[in-house]
């Protein structure tokens, strides 16, 4: 009788299974998962109770910088325990006005690079407190996908690390502008170096008149300064 019981069990279990799938089939639209790019889950609005200020009371999902308010003080970079923030600045020319922050501070430094590596960030929120201009903060935006391939001024190693496109560049200074300023600085340095070289050659010319031992030459202030400039 095991034979017939086997057949009967098979038929009943088959019908049970077919009932299950048919139930899903007719009600698939109700149970289907979120179609992510088309539909998005709304952000939760709960207070997670960190700090007193309302601006910090958000879900920490992504760091954001209002780069217009950044004065390039690098306090956040120093505060970061995992070194995920990298800031490069350039001095502006004398008298050049590059605007003020929302708190009214005059900006003195041109932020040529402000990258946040979100693969390294551990969402500790420690960088937001030192900021004197309150321009770096955590946002509840959990979507890290980016369509744009912004030219990030990073080294090759960092570019390789950024294969996920998760190093965020906040600096808006165009590369040409940075190059121009670097060129100006380099020109100035070159002029300075040329003047120093001239002075050194003159000093050497005076020194050949009264020869000195060769080992003493290396500790002359002129040559040391030249090495430093290189």
């Amino acid at each position: 009788m095991g034979y017939f019981k086997n057949i009967g069990d098979s038929i009943t279990t088959l019908i049970t299974g077919m009932k299950v799938t048919m139930g899903y089939f007719v009600r698939a639209k109700e149970h289907v998962t979120l179609q992510y790019p088309d539909e998005k889950w709304p952000n939760p609005e709960r207070n997670i109770g960190v700090g007193e200020l309302d601006t910090y009371n958000v879900i920490r999902s992504k760091l954001h910088v209002d780069i217009d308010d950044c004065i390039g003080c690098k306090k956040c970079e120093r505060a970061c325990p995992v070194n995920c923030i990298t800031i490069d600045t350039l001095k502006t020319d004398k008298g050049e006005d590059i605007g003020t922050t929302k708190l009214g501070t005059q900006k003195r430094l041109l932020v040529t690079r402000f990258t946040i590596d979100m693969t390294e960030c551990m969402y500790c929120d420690l960088c937001t407190f030192p900021c004197p201009e309150e321009c770096i903060y955590m946002t509840p935006d959990y979507r890290f996908e980016r369509g744009d391939n912004k030219e990030v001024q990073v080294t090759n190693v960092e570019r390789w690390r950024d294969r996920n496109n998760l190093i965020y560049e906040y600096s808006t200074v165009p590369k040409t502008e940075v190059d121009r300023r670097l060129q100006i600085i380099a020109d100035a340095e070159a002029v300075k170096a040329a003047a120093l070289e001239k002075a050194r050659v003159a000093a050497e010319a005076s020194a050949t008149a009264t020869p000195k031992p060769a080992e003493n030459r290396e500790i002359t202030p002129g040559s040391g300064e030249e090495q430093a400039h290189e």
Partner: peptide, 13 residues
Amino acid sequence: KVSAFMQVRLGPM
């Protein structure tokens, strides 16, 4: 489509 609906998906869209 049938397989997707039976597995609570939407299938090719």
